[in-house]
Each structure stands twice: as structure tokens, then as C-alpha cells.
Design a protein around this nucleic acid. Structure first.
Lengths: 145, 145
DNA sequence: CCGTGAAGTGAGAACCGCTCTCAGTTGGAG
DNA sequence: CTCCAACTGAGAGCGGTTCTCACTTCACGG
């Protein structure tokens, strides 16, 4: 997750080629600090803690822009809310989400196109993987998020 | 989809071992008539057409019960609404949904556990596959649903 | 440096899929 | 037939997300 912070100053900005406002910078920095999956609302909570006044709608817009730019990935959902995570991994892949601590690990896409019905032209597919990470299994009571 | 209708009178009722009311019977029969994926609301629309007075909440409850009993499967979503389909297929599998006509085809699960991070205990995974079926590719303008 | 226009922002209302509540109804076991 | 738990319909409620609108701010050209 540390390398994610580095990307903040790299040419590949979290928002692609769009404009960078101070609010967006704060949101991207906070997202980089979240270790693991987070919802737009939990990100908003944390952003507001360090920079009061940021609106929830702004966070939603920033998250959409970052997901669009590939800086964030939608990794699943919890209680009906979308889960996101910072993802510097390149290429097509999915994510395994620990339901206890929220840790996110990239998982290679094992999708076999031959399994599809004949003639079906797949345009996209979504995979969400939930479970308990090794660390949380080790410790009797896992972390919380 | 015809074999799905047969299941209505089979011992494996759409609602498992629960009570069968006339409303639920109408909903299960209508679900069997929907060829392809449908939302709870579109199912409600169609149920109401043939049997006015059925409430939306009742359809939601029936859909939940049928999904619980394995008669329906959640096959994806469209515009934020859950897509369901009647599914007689046994065993663990997923579904390919045609985004044009809504046709649903079972797809074997090609998930490789070895792709998971070491020690990660997967509890569940969700896969949604979208594309265009062979039939819709053949006809310039596909069906609608 | 400024002026300018487009992009971004904040607040709150609106939206929408879905669930809950409650009083009334009904299926089916006994 | 009796009885009661399960089911129903209507509408309110909920929660995540998006929209609207007036205002601010970024960044580019001059």
C-alpha cells in the first residue's frame, strides 16, 4: 500500500488527466492511507477528520473519477455499499477481500473463455471474492474495519 | 425454460417446504414464463398484468424465498437492480447474461482456488458475466428486455 | 500576473431499489 | 371445523448514491 502513495506524485495521477483540486488531493491521500477495502462513506469520514468541510458528494465524485482512472478498484460490496481499494496492480485481475480486516489482495483472473456458451461474446465480467485472510485466521479475533 | 415450469408441480417446489399461497403460485408461474433474466420489478409488472392486486413487497418476498430454495438464481444486475433467472441447473455454477435479450446460460465455475493468496480461506465468491448471445449477434437488432 | 471559463465543490433534496411495519387474510395441520 | 403461524397489501421508511444549483477555484492564454 506504500507504493500507492508514491503514485500520488507520479505522472499517473489518481484522477487521470483531470484537474486536481485541494479537496481531491486530500481525498486521494486519504484513500492511500486506508489499508484495505473501504466504502465511500468510510472514506468520507476519514477525510473529514483531517480536513473538515469536504462533502459526501465530493467524495463520491472523486471516488468515481479515481476508479475511472484506474487508481481505485471496486472490490466488492458490504451491506449494500460498494467497497473500493487502492490498486496499483496492472493488467486484468480481481481482488480477494478479507471480511474481517478488509485486507485486499490481487488475484489473477482464472476465467476460462471456453467455459462460455458457444457464440457468446462476453463484454465484461465481475468477480468478487470474500473470505478470511491468513493473518485474521491466525489471530483468534481479527482486526476490524 | 420449459422444464422449469415442470418443477412447479414437482416435489421440489419453488419455495422449498414453505407454504404455497395463491399469490406465490402466480408469482412462481410468472417467473417460469419469463424467458431470461428479470428484475423483481419487471416480474411484478408481469404478475400484476395477469393477477392484479399483488403487491411489490410480496414479489420481493417471493423472489427471496425462491432464491433461497434454489429455484431462482441471482445472475447479475442492471441499473442497480438485481437480476434473477429461473435456474434448474444443479451444482455450483454461474450465469452468462445477454445484455440485449436477457437470455441466461449456465456457465461452469472455472475458479481456481490455487490462484488465491496463501492462507486465504474463501467463504464465497460472486461472478457475473455479461455479453451478447449468439442469437443476438446473428440478428442485426436483438430482442429486448 | 491578471481575466476567464470550465471544472470542481458543498449542502441538501431527490432518487430508487429494497425492506419493514401493521392490520387483515389465508393455508393447511390437527 | 378451528386455529394460528405464515402470508399479504399498502405505504412508510431506509440507506446508498446521484442530482441540482449557486458558488469557488484551478489553470491556461494573453
Amino acid at each position: 500500500m506504500t507504493e500507492a502513495r508514491d503514485r500520488l506524485s507520479s505522472p499517473a495521477a489518481p484522477y487521470g488527466s483531470r484537474r486536481m483540486s485541494s479537496a481531491r488531493r486530500a481525498i486521494a491521500e486519504t484513500a492511500a492511507l486506508m489499508d484495505g477495502a473501504f466504502t465511500a462513506e468510510s472514506l468520507h469520514d476519514r477525510v473529514v477528520a483531517s480536513r473538515p468541510g469536504i462533502g459526501l458528494a465530493t467524495v463520491y465524485r472523486a471516488v468515481a473519477a479515481m476508479a475511472d482512472a484506474g487508481y481505485l478498484a471496486r472490490v466488492g460490496e458490504r451491506d449494500g455499499a460498494a467497497l473500493y481499494a487502492v490498486c496499483g496492480h496492472d493488467g486484468h485481475h480481481h481482488h480477494a477481500v478479507c471480511e474481517r480486516c478488509g485486507a485486499v489482495t490481487p488475484v489473477e483472473c482464472a476465467f476460462v473463455p471456453s467455459a462460455l456458451p458457444a457464440g457468446f461474446a462476453m463484454t465484461r465480467h465481475e468477480v468478487a471474492i470474500y473470505g478470511v485472510c491468513a493473518e485474521c485466521q491466525g489471530s483468534e479475533r481479527g482486526g476490524s474495519r
